[in-house]
Design a protein around this nucleic acid. Sequence first.
DNA 1: ATGAAAGCGCTAACAA
DNA 2: TTGTTAGCGCTTTCAT
Lengths: 341, 341
Amino acid sequence: MTVPRRPATMADVAARAQVALSTVSRALNGRPGVSPAQAERIRAVARELHYAVSPAASGLVTGRSGAVGVLLPHIDQWFHSTALAGLEDALRGSGLDVLLYRAESAADRAAFFQSLPFRRRVDALVVIAVSLTAEESSALSGHGVPVVAVSSRIPGAPFVGIDDGAGAAGAVRHLTNLGHRRIAVIRSTNATGSFGSASTSRFAGFRQAMEERKLPVPPEYVVSAPWGMEGGSEAMAALLSSADIPTAVFTESDEVAIGALRTLRRSNLVAGRDISVMGFDNHSMADLMDLSTVAQPVREQGRIGGQMALEAMETGSVEQPETVLPTRLIVRGTTAAPGAE
Amino acid sequence: MTVPRRPATMADVAARAQVALSTVSRALNGRPGVSPAQAERIRAVARELHYAVSPAASGLVTGRSGAVGVLLPHIDQWFHSTALAGLEDALRGSGLDVLLYRAESAADRAAFFQSLPFRRRVDALVVIAVSLTAEESSALSGHGVPVVAVSSRIPGAPFVGIDDGAGAAGAVRHLTNLGHRRIAVIRSTNATGSFGSASTSRFAGFRQAMEERKLPVPPEYVVSAPWGMEGGSEAMAALLSSADIPTAVFTESDEVAIGALRTLRRSNLVAGRDISVMGFDNHSMADLMDLSTVAQPVREQGRIGGQMALEAMETGSVEQPETVLPTRLIVRGTTAAPGAE
DNA sequence: ATGAAAGCGCTAACAA
DNA sequence: TTGTTAGCGCTTTCAT
């Protein structure tokens, strides 16, 4: 495969094909007004020259960049990379590229929301699991660029996600149905030390399910720790040191639950027998660890987010701007009736 | 935060600041020839208007797009997303955006290598863990765009990765040192059904270590399966059905090893006691599963890949074009002497 | 120190 | 059906 040193321009193709520049543009973009024979000839020349349009040049004219931006807090966490894969699935074949905007630290975010660089760079922005302030949310809209929210809502933007509160409540009802009354919860904070919207909703679902059964939630049964295995591990240790150890623990994510399981194991306690543990997400590790959890379709959320972006780009709006995907309780070995042998 | 409906152009800033367009360009790009007071005034106006340069327009002039492309086979696998995070770390603060090119299927690849779209889109291309054919490799170079190889080598391109062969050989020596003589290996195929270069190198390391000890590698001790837990699970089942069950199994990745562990558990065999299992990568699950493995610094590989790309963009070449990061044997519970109780 | 103007590679009128 | 031409929003000479 021999490829010329300088990328071929449309003018090169036109010269080689002995036609005008505009004819090449028409032929390559599949526009009418070019005889089929001519078009085929031009396409052949383009292929031969390994021609690729300059998105910069065409974008300057059309106002479209040919890219979709993705704003996410992390790229190496299971939820985010899985959703991103789903988004890629949806965009595959559309000819659109994916541009990453990582907003992990407060500084990243401030920079992003000051200059809003995506306005010039992308034709749509998909925001995955970023809980925005009201100010940040409003800064996103009003440019020509459609915004889609995945997992965390953005006022005025199409949304795809799950009902975190309902999922959590269902999980806690599973515990109360088993007979648990002393149920603790491990809340998780994000990189900036606060609770994200998913976390907040799941906690609300927990409270609601407890209230339904008139079960008390003493302050020492609500522990917070940084998201992740480490945090889950520490939080469980804190719970084990309380005067009245809970019989069940609800966590906001499988990673946290798995950290909790590790502490249990090290304390010679058996999950499911001595203490029940619930996760959330159905991470691939959950099956492995026999962890009861709430499954959510993550890749699907990304896929639908991508479709919404495509639709918004084409039609200017999204028919079904609110898609709430179902969650599913998965009962495995880490939850059982209290005191069961 | 009020942001104008139409993104401000440089002309808008110039008009508001009562200066010529070119002065704005100079001021915003920190070029000499603008009085400090004027420059500050202009920057203030730009901030006020939430101005962001159009990369398309500036790129058209300068030939630089302000983006780095990343070509990878997956984005939702641990290695790839972790390396990508490292690359992001390196690019943070450079003002460069990251553009994703996913080359999972053969069709994706063919499309990518036909039009080589990155030539116009990005200022550098980082290829993460893609084993290229000679033809593909040569197609990548020769444009003005520097190419960096992470994990899998590309002839002529700066490389960062590990010594897969040495890592694998070390792991197998660990097994032979424990006294194992009947050691099997599970090889992993990728999405296109073939062995990647890392896989090939690790297998070579396995063979070498076995030869050093003059240990035989009968064909039935070399099983191949699709990469992943499922594949590992199946491969281990195949090994357990052989006439002469091995006392140790070397795998090419932790995910595969964990699948193998699952089969062991279901067969009422205990890893480390009945059969030793070695992983590779030191995935976060490895610690959890008490899996012996070979640790490699993945995020660091991505980070260095990003730095190499930056250096190549700035200077045209990379000082240290070959960085081989060390691997580290981590002995955990799944490996022990054969026949030990 | 500042301004005017050419042009980067395309698309989209408008002409022929 | 094809060709000609005016910009898109910038950077970069070249004047001033």
